[in-house]
Design a protein around this nucleic acid. Sequence first.
DNA 1: AATTATAGACTACGCTTGTAATCTATAATT
DNA 2: AATTATAGATTACAAGCGTAGTCTATAATT
Lengths: 124, 124
Amino acid sequence: MIELSKAEFDVLDALWINYPATASQIIERLSDDKQWHEKTIKTLLGRLVKKGALTFEKEGRQYIYMPCMDRADYTLKESQNFIERFFSGRIAPLVSGFAKSEQLSQQDINELKKVIDDWEKNQK
Amino acid sequence: MIELSKAEFDVLDALWINYPATASQIIERLSDDKQWHEKTIKTLLGRLVKKGALTFEKEGRQYIYMPCMDRADYTLKESQNFIERFFSGRIAPLVSGFAKSEQLSQQDINELKKVIDDWEKNQK
DNA sequence: AATTATAGACTACGCTTGTAATCTATAATT
DNA sequence: AATTATAGATTACAAGCGTAGTCTATAATT
């Protein structure tokens, strides 16, 4: 699995919002949340390309970037990894930790029920 | 929040198994899973102390280590952090990702149901 | 055509991390 | 008491990371 640093992920995440996109567009999107210098973001784009997380096509003087992977795939792998490390691969203890510390809302519960429902329908 | 590297967490995790414990005991516990040199583990113990994740008491020539935090507290914070980064703070999308990729077993589902049940009882 | 602005490439630099080796003080052994 | 073994302290060192600054080629403007 391609390993991304936090900052690299944030840049890729800005691309996932909508792609393909130019560096300027990505910089623009990130400007709301991060106080990053334009050069910083360009460095990170370069590192992402080098890691194989992005590709690009030239268009005049600019590059048009495109992610090489799906957000859902990436976050799934990260999640498996995380749950393996902290909860020996079991997902329920994570949710249970949230429940115990009052971190679950009624909406969360409803969403979880739906996930379970869907899973069960799918078993039949 | 105290930030721990992966290797640091693994050492702390070996201490959480049972504490207080000496460096040798921790090294012994880790020897099953990791090919780490004794010196490496001692370096990590030192860094954990410096970060405030561990304390120790001297006993003769040795230190008796003790965690400064609870495993459940630590993993909860890490989980919140993780879910914030990757799923905008919502837990259901994480579980849903597992479901979609066939990563959930019947046991997981049963455990999740129990978590939900307990949560609901607690609401009344 | 000459000049300027700018996109991306390359370089920089201190901090953290993984992974130990060496140093030093003292407990254990002879 | 002298010697040795060993626990922890200190030092090491390359790779990765956050965070840009400088260089270079070329597109845009005058």
